[in-house]
């Protein structure tokens, strides 16, 4: 398991691995927002939590289609399926590697981009906390979507259509935590909901991902 995680991290950092693409996308989307809504700092600071969450979510989506497709194309998935490693742990490690190379950098970059959008000072902590709690669910749900579409030509677009609706609960509660935090309100309820969604996704979805992967490998 550790070998698989290490290999995926090494592959992400090597040439063509795509590390940093999601981060750069997040940066560009966030920078474009003030251009489109105009330089009104009051408006920007009220939409900042939602925009940052939406940007992070789309950036996560960007690298999903490579998550399992590359391993499918070069035959690695077939060989992994016959290895002593259960497919459940294969997809869990894949999701973890995706989070470490995509989700975690987004969490760390978000406060810097919050400054660009004039995010109110009390919101920074809650923005980071909500992203830290929510992005693992994005990776796990995304891995499930990638397992569903593995082996399909042009599966990337279908993957987005399948995964985006599944991201809705995480987006609602994640952005709510950040918004309430920025407004100085009580955040406990959405925070618990967000943590619950993430915990359930991590606990259940690897089994679903492994099951659809077995069907798709036939």
């Amino acid at each position: 398991m550790i070998a698989l995680l290490k290999r995926d991290l090494v592959l992400a950092f090597r040439a063509g691995g795509g590390f940093g693409l999601g981060l750069a996308f997040f940066l560009i989307v966030t920078v474009l927002v003030p251009f489109s809504v105009g330089p009104q700092s009051a408006l920007l600071s009220s939409i900042a939590p939602g925009v940052l969450w939406l940007g992070a979510l789309l950036a996560c989506l960007l690298s999903l289609d490579r998550l399992l497709a590359l391993d499918w194309e070069d035959g690695t998935l077939d060989l992994l399926a016959t290895a002593p490693l259960p497919l459940e742990s294969v997809v869990t490690m894949k999701a973890l590697a995706h989070w470490l190379t995509t989700g975690l950098p987004l969490v760390l970059a978000a406060p810097v981009l919050g400054v660009l959008l004039n995010l109110p000072a009390p919101g920074f902590v809650w923005l980071v906390v909500s992203l830290l709690l929510g992005t693992p669910a994005l990776s796990v749900v995304g891995t499930f979507g990638a397992a569903l579409t593995v082996g399909l030509k042009r599966g990337g677009l279908l993957l987005s259509l399948l995964v985006l609706p599944l991201y809705v609960p995480t987006l609602i509660f994640g952005a709510e935590v950040a918004r309430r935090g920025a407004a100085g309100m009580e955040v406990a309820t959405p925070l618990l909901m967000l943590a619950g969604i993430t915990a359930a996704a991590i606990a259940l979805l690897p089994f679903a991902s492994a099951a659809v992967l077995r069907v798709n490998l036939r």
Binding site: R7, L11, R14, A15, G16, G75, L79
Partner: peptide, 8 residues
Amino acid sequence: SDGLKPTL
């Protein structure tokens, strides 16, 4: 297919 990663 051999399951090889070109960048390794």
